[in-house]
């Protein structure tokens, strides 16, 4: 069960609740870091470590919802499990729309919480992998020459070599040469594979929270 290099962050103003959550989560082998307030949490370096956030909705100062918004603004794609003292439906809808993994009501059932943590960590893993893949694709894409990128766009648009040559005003042989370079540099096995890569490069990512990072990657 032990996941390496993952941390579950717990933010709750009530020390007893904090300690209890920490104990439960540690009992299944996760590493836990606890915080008494949103501000305290924001001071730590949580970006590079895979993990998830267990967050009390009701916090003094910056509330749980405020923190969620702040992280989104910061482009941090950390899955959040909300915990609330009382089932508040409008609040639940709001946080779920904003991308929360789960909203649990106190007293929390251990399985619900642990399931949610597993799910959140899985989601984090996926999004981290996707992020890495995209970074690599971007690097490959960045290694293409201007002409090769133009050729790649046209290939992905489904044009034939002849059509591409006509469009770019170059010979068909030259197009073939560029095409071979694109396929090699992008490590694409087929045109279909290349099209998939192009879609990924243009995508907004799996979560809204990645927008900021994507923008910086494309620049």
């Amino acid at each position: 069960m032990t996941e390496e290099r993952t941390i579950v962050y717990v933010v709750d103003d009530d020390p007893a609740t904090r300690d209890a959550l920490s104990s439960l989560i540690r009992s299944v082998g996760f590493q836990v870091a606890t915080f008494g307030s949103a501000d305290e949490f924001l001071e730590t370096d949580f970006r590079d470590t895979p993990g998830c956030l267990v967050l009390d909705i009701r916090l003094p100062g910056l509330s749980g919802i405020d923190l969620q918004r702040r992280l989104t603004e910061m482009g941090v794609d950390l899955p959040i499990i909300f915990i609330t003292g009382h089932g508040d439906i409008p609040l639940a809808v709001q946080v779920m729309k904003a991308g929360a993994v789960e909203l649990l009501t106190k007293p929390v059932r251990d399985e619900d919480l642990l399931d949610a943590i597993h799910q959140a960590l899985g989601r984090d893993r996926v999004s981290r992998r996707e992020r890495l893949e995209k970074i690599e694709l971007r690097q490959r894409f960045d290694s293409l020459t201007r002409r090769e990128r133009q050729v790649m766009h046209l290939i992905c648009d489904g044009r034939l070599n002849k059509q591409i040559a006509a469009e770019l005003g170059i010979s068909e042989v030259t197009v073939k040469l560029h095409r071979a370079n694109v396929m090699r540099k992008m490590k694409a096995g087929s045109v279909a594979g290349l099209v998939g890569m192009a879609t990924k490069l243009a995508s907004k990512g799996s979560q809204g929270g990645t927008r900021a990072r994507r923008r910086s990657a494309i620049r």
Partner: peptide
């Protein structure tokens, strides 16, 4: 609040 902590 404390009851929740007890359950957990």
């Amino acid at each position: 609040q404390p009851l929740g902590a007890v359950v957990t």
